[in-house]
Design a protein around this nucleic acid. Structure first.
Lengths: 130, 130
DNA sequence: TTTAAATTGTTATAATATAACACCATGTAA
DNA sequence: TTACATGGTGTTATATTATAACAATTTAAA
């Protein structure tokens, strides 16, 4: 039930870079890295990022303004995301817990409203930094 | 178990403004609003904001870069926050659900790690926009 | 009272992100 | 085939968000 989005050239270049990166990447460090491939302007990067986020290939870590590839095969179009973030080394890990996602998708606020779209960021120390 | 932080002048001015605002406020619209009170530079605003966030009087909505006063009396020092955000009118509501906060505080990731600090942002449509 | 910690004021600049416009490719409907 | 809608590209300029660095001052505690 989701169209395969063949990525365009810019989208593919930027997705590959993020996907191979061991760390989340900032928009301007992406820009720097792809300049040799002909992507010269911030807008070219942001447009590709926007599209990649929209189709669920990458996620934006809002509290850090960084981007990571989606490592949750189930969320090709992902509007429900959860991450842990190390407050020392800034390592980010995507959390895929059916328990958690079910709990959040079924959570009702005090007006009885449910939300299928959410973003959860946990903060703590990763194994190495603990 | 939390020191009363009497606010400094700048902190008080900026807290009052945010607290009275019916909507979350952006840093630079805060700056604009307090210029008549002698706060002239972005840094003066950001410093007050940082402190107010640190002591839990306000929260930052990371996905929107806006600030709102804390309306959850239990979180004077709040490191565990949850909000709903209307995708049309951008109305933000702080969620205080003991069920939710207990669930998240007790959530263990696949390494068995627990997190007392988190930020959760739900997205949907508010009553008016629905 | 002197010392440490926090806050202030200031100028400058860094980092993050979008507006506006012209152009091009592709698919599709008349 | 033409037209036209959609989405992507390239470009310049600019808007928005946030911090660096430094000096002075206030505050509160030892």
């Amino acid at each position: 039930m989701h169209k395969e989005h063949p990525l365009t050239k810019n989208q593919q270049i930027i997705f590959d870079l993020i996907d191979k990166s061991p760390e989340p990447m900032k928009a301007y460090s992406i820009l720097f890295s792809v300049q040799k491939k002909g992507i010269k302007a911030p807008l070219q990067v942001y447009r590709a990022l926007d599209k990649l986020v929209e189709i669920g290939k990458i996620h934006k870590i809002e509290s850090r303004n960084v981007f990571i590839a989606c490592h949750n095969s189930s969320c090709q179009v992902s509007k429900a995301t959860a991450f842990s973030i190390c407050e020392i080394c800034e390592k980010v890990t995507e959390i895929s817990s059916t328990g958690l996602s079910k709990y959040l998708a079924n959570f009702k606020d005090k007006d009885g409203m449910k939300y299928s779209k959410y973003n959860l960021e946990f903060f703590g120390l990763c194994k190495k930094c603990r």
